[in-house]
Design a protein around this nucleic acid. Structure first.
Lengths: 146, 146
DNA sequence: GACATATAGTTAGTTATGCAACTATTATAA
DNA sequence: TTATAATAGTTGCATAACTAACTATATGTC
């Protein structure tokens, strides 16, 4: 089984280890205000594909710490929006590779800007040292709990 | 590289400020192994009622950082299990007060033990000072984001 | 080559979350 | 006093999560 210990662990990499549902909700609202009708969960998938397109669903499980069933349905929904498509791998016919469509590419800059701004606001007044401690504690809690 | 986040504000107050879905899942599993078929979310409601019985749904919203619709349905499910009951307030007829039933009381000690043990394992090697910093950062991120 | 096992992905069932629209009750203001 | 606003809770709709059972393909061992 994959290490899918975190429901939306994705946010971690985005907000420097300081994760909170408050931030997630704020980010979602900012997306919506900008006319971007995607969920944060969907965005987290796109985020990884912008970094590296054509990942397998299994690889997305690993990178986003999600269950494979969750990935299946997230991809289903993003596919319905026309932002990604599944293409069967030629090397291994069990594998689906997930590719961004042309419709997804313009979203990247807009969402990056909104995400960065949201995170900066959330992290105001918090020092780099504190963030490092939070990350370190998270890491050890994770190690202790698996 | 780990990835951590607390799923609900609730967990934050329960596990000494160090929240992670890994701990939540471990806790859930430990509950199940002990024959306690409740979810962590349900348990988080019971936890607050064991500390102070007869809270209103609104008060549970505040204390567990949840939406009132979420509380409505969580209470629905816990009520179906026979662990709590809603009693209309005499002072304000809009208000439901949530009371533990006799069936819920014996669960307290068992779940406390399991929770404490799970938390102690998760927090091994982490100092009180570090935990305080994590709590403080969470609080400030929350304040910055609401 | 054949059989067992591991891996990638899908589907079903249950729980939980958030938003928005709604009802009922209480508080406030004209 | 009456009209309006605020508050407590419920319900409908959509998304997401986890477990477990399932299909299909690959791999490894005899």
């Amino acid at each position: 089984m994959s290490n899918n210990q975190f429901k939306r662990g994705e946010l971690y990499s985005v907000i420097n280890g300081v994760a909170s549902t408050a931030v997630a909700r704020r980010l979602q609202k900012n997306f919506r205000n900008a006319g971007l009708e995607i969920t944060i969960e969907q965005w987290s998938i796109l985020y990884h594909l912008w970094k590296e397109d054509g990942l397998s669903q299994q690889e997305l499980c690993t990178r986003t710490f999600r269950d494979k069933a969750s990935i299946t349905r997230l991809i289903d929904n993003i596919e319905k929006l026309g932002l990604v498509e599944r293409i069967a791998s030629k090397d291994d016919r069990r594998v689906n590779l997930v590719y961004l469509t042309d419709a997804a590419k313009p979203l990247q800059e807009a969402t990056y800007n909104i995400a960065n701004q949201t995170m900066n606001e959330a992290l105001q007044g918090i020092s780099k040292e504190e963030i490092e401690i939070v990350k370190s504690v998270f890491q050890r809690v994770y190690e202790n709990s698996k």
